[in-house]
Simulated assay, not measured.
Amino acid sequence: MFDNADWNEENTKLLCELFAEQVTAHNRSGTHLNKSGYKNVMEKFKDKTELNYSKMQFKNKWDKMRREYANWKRLVKETGLGWDNEKKTYKAPDSRWKQLNKDYPGISKFKDGPLQFEELKSIMFEDIRNSEDDHWAPSSGVAPTNQQDAEADEAEDKDEDYEANEASDYWEEYSPEPSKGKRPAPSNWKDKGKKPKSSGGHWVQKELSKLVALSERSTASWTKEHFIASQVFVKRAEREMFMTLETPEE
């Protein structure tokens, strides 16, 4: 059971230190830490705080801090902004902050104060901050590369389930299914007993490539069936014999 995330100033500073440590140790792949990096952060954070947070909680915080860092750096390039020595942040009319926040959601938080722990966040994010992304606005209709990468990273934990489902969908399409005791002809065949127009060596090679690829990516439970199919379907006579079978049991 994981604890509810409490990102107070103390916990946030510790997290930034741990994130920066992992980046320095080359445990960041793309725009996120790799599995080893997150594992180290989770263990060290729990050891120092006795808080048990999930990998997704750390990923979400990473994404939020990366957006904040990018927004802070965007302000450096904005013209017409002043500097508030008391608040240690930029100053501008409310109308300007409103427009900036419309273009870059969340940026108006810096109206009241600077970015926290900028030095640590610079280690974490500066070398992956893309200058084109800094000027991206939702109105452009095209998400920046880093945002797409982040979305892909968030799906990392679901890859194994996805691959298993993909294998299942493929076998549903090509495996025999009972229908009144007989195996129905594949939907892409025009007449029973006839091969598709694309039949022949190229078609077999294409289908075998799919089977081999799925065998490599799927979970262990599918491996045996994929291997057998990849061996059986190489021989034309056995492919034709396979098509004569009427039930899944056969």
Rank of each mutant, 00 (worst) to 15 (best):
P184E: 07
E166R: 15
S230C: 03
Q231T: 05
V41Q: 02
Q99C: 07
A70P: 01
A143W: 07
L15T: 07
N130S: 12
K46A: 14
S36E: 15
Q147F: 07
V212W: 02
L14N: 03
W62D: 05
N60S: 07
K109N: 09
D112K: 11
W171E: 06
K197V: 09
K224Y: 14
N4Y: 11
K190V: 12
P186A: 05
H202Q: 15
A229M: 06
L81R: 04
M65H: 10
V232A: 08
K35W: 07
T145I: 11
L115S: 06
K158C: 05
K194P: 01
N27I: 02
T12K: 07
D63R: 12
S122L: 05
D84N: 15
G113F: 08
E50C: 12
E166W: 09
A143Q: 07
W83E: 03
G80L: 04
T24M: 10
W171A: 05
S199G: 03
N52I: 09
P196V: 06
K39G: 03
S54N: 03
P114E: 02
P105G: 02
Y69D: 00
E126P: 02
M124W: 03
D149V: 08
E151M: 14
L51G: 02
K46F: 15
L81A: 01
D127I: 05
M65Q: 12
R28N: 07
W7C: 01
K197C: 02
D191I: 10
P176A: 09
K77E: 15
A5L: 11
G181H: 03
N130M: 12
A20E: 04
E173P: 05
G141T: 01
M241A: 11
K91E: 13
Q231D: 13
A150H: 04
P186I: 06
K73V: 11
W222F: 15
D3F: 07
G141Q: 02
S108K: 13
G193K: 03
E132V: 12
D157K: 10
D103C: 08
A237R: 06
K206P: 00
K210N: 13
H135G: 14
Y53Q: 00
A150P: 00
E207L: 08
L18S: 03
